[in-house]
């Protein structure tokens, strides 16, 4: 257990902060995903054909191509893209894009593709009568969305959102290839310097299990909260 001591003698503190990093990346990624999903789900549900195609293209590509390949695209591509834009504005130097940002962005885009399908399904599952009734009651659009449609949507979508969260959380391990120090990368460093990969990778597995277990509990509580009255 000396290997996990807190402070300079062990890897306890490093792994603790790495776990926080994993949580941070996953949270930023899932919210980027929600943001994209809100846009692309509305594209998929719209009656305009070109927007439909756009939405389908997004979900097909990012659910069909391996996560690692997407990460490589952003990892190698982002600084090139930023420098290209900078050149237009007359800046010629080398710009390195932050690993946290590219990681969260690439995982977020993948996570968004899954969320899009979840959001779309949730909206479609709501009875048309609910929309019509709200209109007849003379409720404003904002009020009936926030008070009637979204609460019902959340109840149905929560189990799927929980799934997307688990996928996103596990996908963050792939960002370790870009050098961002999250659980996997920290374990790799620790395994390399102590020559004890079995211990550190097993411990990483335990950390991930702990995170997935915690989030499962949290989502179960949320589901209970939103199922009141059913």
């Amino acid at each position: 257990m000396g290997l996990l001591a807190y402070g300079d003698t062990g890897w306890g503190d490093e792994l603790f902060f790495a776990t926080l990093m994993t949580i941070a990346v996953a949270l930023v990624a899932i919210f980027i995903g929600f943001f994209l999903a809100a846009i692309f789900a509305s594209f998929k549900l719209s009656s305009i054909r070109i927007l439909n195609l756009f939405g389908s293209f997004y979900t097909t590509v990012f659910r069909g191509v391996p996560e690692l390949l997407v990460i490589y695209l952003f990892f190698f591509g982002s600084s090139g893209a930023v420098m290209y834009v900078a050149k237009i504005f007359g800046y010629d130097g080398y710009i390195e894009v932050n690993a946290f940002f590219t990681g969260a962005l690439s995982i977020g885009i993948i996570s968004g593709a899954y969320s899009t399908e979840v959001f779309r399904g949730a909206v479609q599952s709501i009875n048309k009568g609910q929309f019509e009734a709200s209109k007849v009651l003379g409720l404003k659009k904002k009020v009936y969305y926030y008070k009637i449609i979204i609460p019902q949507m959340l109840r149905l979508a929560l189990p799927n959102i929980s799934n997307v969260w688990q996928i996103t959380l596990k996908d963050t391990s792939l960002i370790s290839v870009t050098g961002l120090v999250e659980i996997m990368r920290q374990s790799y460093i620790a395994a390399g310097s102590t020559r004890d990969p079995l211990f550190f990778y097993s411990f990483a597995a335990v950390l991930y299990l702990f995170l997935t277990f915690l989030s499962m509990k949290l989502f179960n509580n949320l589901e209970k909260h939103y199922s009141r009255g059913y």
């Binding site: 688990q166 596990k170 996908d171 391990s173 792939l174 370790s176 996997m184 374990s187 790799y188 990969p197 079995l198 990778y201 097993s202 990483a204 597995a205 991930y208 299990l209 997935t212 277990f213």
Partner: peptide, 10 residues
């Protein structure tokens, strides 16, 4: 409950 990457590395 754990990433595939951890499983391969172990």
């Amino acid at each position: 409950g754990t990433p595939l990457l951890v499983q391969i590395f172990i």
